[in-house]
Write a protein that binds this DNA or RNA. Structure first.
Lengths: 178, 178
DNA sequence: TATTGTTATACTCTATAACTATA
DNA sequence: TATAGTTATAGAGTATAACAATA
């Protein structure tokens, strides 16, 4: 009985919840690094996927799904539009709305994105045998469903960088104003 | 051969890596909400755990482990010191160093933190049977080890709120469309 | 009057770089 | 001269709120 369950000097092994947070942050970081080559941030990649899934949605809708305020969505979409990856079309029925669509270039980039995602998947699960990999995926899917997470987007998009304007590279120690 | 073609309009099911990022962000969010009651952020909780594990480390060391620059660590520790949760002691051998220790109040708060962590674990894994829960934990541990993640701290601490001062203004908008 | 998209402003957070005290 | 801790400042990123067009 003196063997207290909780010993402050030697904490218990990390549980699944902590490991999920730890591995999730790690996975997000690795993926972000990976798609720097495509000059995309994870949030931008999420929008491209979203546009492929359900084209023609309004900016307001998309901003809601991604969990960002409309005022932030505008420059976020502006950047991708300038790069020719998505296009805004006026909705004839309600001319207040801008329907967003993926361009051909956007679709092409998305397919390259999927290649990166596959490589990332392999890298993250390198420790597992194929059957274990499948087992893990199944368990995670059940967790996500029970937690009410919608497929394809995750809460992290809210707080993720929305622009990739050359901040993507190394710290670039510009030692100005010495 | 055409069966493995990638159809943009109907993306493949999410893989384990994406689910990890999604569930990880979700878990971190839930945990953050949970410990608002203790007036702690996840990063603060991480430091308390760290101090219990290996007391007496210098601020520089701790900042490195948590992945934050020293200039940010100082006010971060200041806050917890003001609240009497940790204490700085001058190192007699090298008086430049501040050795950090958990106070009694800090240790007491940490034990309450562990209670919350246990409840959080149960909440996150509610979808699983006990044997599956154990199975998942084992798989995640192997992933974390293979990825070189050190136990107890995770990369997300770098970008997490370091103060809990009156952030309670906006509790939980809960904008997820479930 | 309500809603979509947009712009502007104010605020928070952060890293970089100076500064001090010890070594 | 180098390092631990600290402070100051400037910059990036954000949300809130005002605005214009359309309903």
């Amino acid at each position: 009985m003196d063997t207290d369950a909780v010993d402050a000097s030697r904490p218990p092994q990390a549980g699944a919840a902590f490991l999920l947070a730890q591995l999730g942050a790690h996975a997000a970081e690795l993926f972000a690094q990976r798609i720097v080559r495509l000059d995309l941030t994870p949030a931008q990649a999420g929008l491209l996927r979203l546009l492929a899934q359900t084209p023609g949605r309004s900016q307001r809708e998309l901003a809601d799904v991604l969990g960002m305020p409309p005022s932030r969505f505008v420059p976020f979409a502006d950047d991708l539009e300038r790069r020719g990856l998505l296009e805004r079309r006026k909705n004839p029925g309600d001319r207040r709305l801008h329907a967003l669509f993926l361009t051909e270039d956007g679709a092409e980039l998305l397919s390259r994105l999927r290649v990166e995602a596959a490589a990332h998947e392999k890298q993250m699960c390198a420790a597992l045998a194929p059957s274990e990999h499948q087992e893990l995926t199944g368990l995670l899917r059940r967790l996500a469903q029970q937690q009410g997470l919608s497929p394809g987007i995750h809460p992290g998009y809210r707080s993720m960088r929305t622009s990739s304007t050359s901040t993507a590279g190394r710290p670039a120690p510009d030692q100005s104003t010495a």
